[in-house]
């Protein structure tokens, strides 16, 4: 059944005089890949931060899974099923890939300190469960050969996958991807597009920020366009790409470059 998973109502965010977000209202469904585009500095990352508990919106309301989450912390968002990746990669550099993924499973591992110190059956079972699940995710992403390598030393593209793996490990209902193809070549970008489609089929809804229009046209069910903190339009990829305002604000600029 289609239902609203992340609802933003009249979100505004001000930074010392700068209106980074100006009255943004969006409604993400739980079975779609939703794209967010806009020129650099349009406020895309700021929007992610405001609707995931990282920096509270200056005004407006956020509803996540039917509950008001405006004043919740990132932690509480995660526990209720939100996961994200970052524009500037944030892997745990001095931990191995499999450890990175296990950190993603933090909220799912139900043991306490006594279990851990006494190494009870429950603790062993939970660790085994975590190991299996992380192996499955690493295979899904094709990074199983890096399992015991430190994440900080891996190539850029692989670190991105580790970040996505960590997000998937928490069994999210919604996953936010902030410019996941940044720094990737053509081939890697296309692979990632396929991967995101497969992620959507696994369960979570996807909200993705991206610059690459070709990538977004093929991938998204709906796209929202942000410009100077304002929502220009929301629509299907073909509606968006044929809207003259969007072409002027965003696509036109891209061509000039």
């Amino acid at each position: 059944m289609m239902a609203s998973i992340l609802k933003m109502e009249h979100i505004c965010k001000n930074f010392a005089g700068l209106k980074a977000l100006d009255d943004v209202t969006l409604d993400i469904q739980d079975d779609e890949i939703f794209g967010l585009i806009g020129p650099n500095g349009a406020g895309k990352t700021t929007l992610f931060n405001a609707v995931s508990g990282f920096s509270k919106p200056s005004s407006g309301e956020v509803e996540f899974c039917g509950e008001n989450y405006t004043h919740k912390t990132t932690n509480e968002y995660c526990i209720n099923g939100l996961a994200r990746t970052f524009q500037n990669i944030r892997v745990f550099g001095d931990m191995t890939v499999v450890e990175n993924l296990k950190v993603g499973m933090h909220k799912l591992i139900k043991t306490n300190l006594a279990d851990i110190i006494l190494q009870t059956r429950r603790q062993k079972a939970e660790e085994e469960k975590a190991r299996k699940k992380c192996e499955e995710i690493m295979e899904f992403l094709g990074i199983e050969k890096y399992a015991d390598d430190f994440a900080g030393g891996l190539p850029y593209g692989t670190q991105r996958l580790v970040e996505i793996g960590r997000a998937l490990a928490s069994d999210p209902k919604l996953i936010l991807l902030d410019e996941p193809t940044a720094g990737m070549n053509e081939q890697e970008t296309m692979d990632l597009m396929e991967l995101i489609k497969r992620i959507r089929k696994r369960g979570p809804a996807v909200l993705v920020i991206e610059h690459n229009m070709k990538f977004m046209m093929n991938l998204c069910d709906r796209i929202a366009v942000l410009n100077f903190g304002k929502l220009l339009m929301v629509g299907t990829p073909s509606e968006v790409s044929s809207n003259p305002e969007v072409i002027e604000a965003y696509l036109g600029k891209e061509e000039e470059k």
Binding site: S52, F54, T73, T74, N75, Y77, C78, I79, A83, R84, F86, R90, V91, F92, G93, D94, M95, E99, K102, V103, G104, M105, H106, K107, I109, T111, L113, I116, I117, Q119, Q123, E127, R166, S170
Partner: peptide
Amino acid sequence: RITKSKYGRAYMALRDDSIAASYAG
């Protein structure tokens, strides 16, 4: 045992990147 458990991993995670750790619950 603590370092090999979710506790130890949480410690290392918040050491390496506290923002990413908070997003991991």
